[in-house]
């Protein structure tokens, strides 16, 4: 029961307290305004270069944007605690770490979904993008699993933040790298082989590929292998991040370096 309370209430309070994203003056420009212009920016480059149609960029960016909250949020979960000098008291509690951090990931995943829905709406409203009603449920499932995978990736960034000096730098680097490498705006076959191989091991890549196929009319059964691959990648990053976190936590206790900035 305590774990459940830590999961839900702890996650909710941490979200409100750490990120302040619920305040409209922060939430609207960052989580809705910037994504709107990001989609327009890449769609217009796409139009100018003749690379792909609007749908390619709307789907790619809408799915990628679901990752933004997850990566930044999870990284800041740890970085923020460190910054406010509350990490040591938090880790001194007997709270279950899995419940603690998974609870914090839940609002971020929901947030990612909201941003993604908004992004698809922007594409439909301002660009040349249509989506059949029957494509919406499989697309929602794909966006959800991509958001989960990216949140797990964000936890990895946060775990590294236990040791690295500047977790915000790492989080920014991670988000921009995902934007470059995961086929958000560039077809994977335009990359050299080694870049494509890296992108296949990152979250988002398979999710975006599946989302594009679904948006083009494919059914869930046609892309379920991509869906499960995305989920598998998310589980891998989540497990690796958790192991790394526990290792750095134990090491930080031993060396008394938990809050060294």
């Amino acid at each position: 029961m305590t774990h459940v309370r830590v999961f839900f209430i702890g996650g909710y309070i941490a979200y409100r307290a750490l990120f302040n994203w619920m305040h409209p003056s922060y939430y609207i420009p960052t989580m809705l305004g910037a994504p709107l212009f990001q989609i327009l920016f890449f769609a217009y480059i796409g139009r100018y270069t003749g690379l792909k149609d609007d749908a390619f960029f709307v789907v790619g960016n809408a799915v990628q944007l679901s990752a933004m909250a997850g990566v930044y949020g999870m990284a800041m979960t740890i970085g923020g605690e460190r910054w406010t000098q509350t990490l040591s008291p938090l880790l001194a509690t007997p709270a279950n770490r899995l419940a603690l951090f998974l609870g914090r990931s839940l609002p971020l995943i929901a947030n990612g979904m909201v941003t993604s829905v908004f992004a698809f709406g922007v594409g439909w409203w301002l660009l040349d993008f249509e989506l059949a009603a029957e494509s919406i449920p499989p697309l929602a499932a794909i966006v959800l699993v991509s958001a989960v995978a990216c949140t797990a990736f964000g936890l990895l960034v946060g775990a590294i933040g236990l040791r690295a000096r500047d977790v915000f730098f790492l989080a920014n680097l991670a988000v921009f790298s995902l934007l470059l490498m995961c086929g958000v705006n560039i077809p994977l076959d335009a990359f050299p082989g080694w870049m494509e191989a890296i992108s296949r091991a990152l979250p988002l890549t398979h999710g975006i590929e599946a989302a594009r196929e679904v948006a083009a009319g494919a059914g869930f059964a046609d892309v379920d292998h991509l869906f499960w691959t995305e989920l598998g990648i998310g589980v891998f990053y989540g497990a690796f991040a958790y192991a790394l976190f526990r290792f750095f936590e134990a090491d930080g206790r031993k060396r008394a370096t938990l809050e060294t900035m």
């Binding site: 480059i45 796409g46 270069t49 003749g50 920014n172 470059l180 560039i186 335009a190």
Partner: peptide, 18 residues
């Protein structure tokens, strides 16, 4: 960040038809 965006732009312009 500019290097990452420039890389994206290089690939997009190179793969495109303009």
């Amino acid at each position: 960040q500019p290097i990452l965006f420039a890389t994206m732009a290089y690939f997009m312009f190179r793969a495109g038809s303009t």
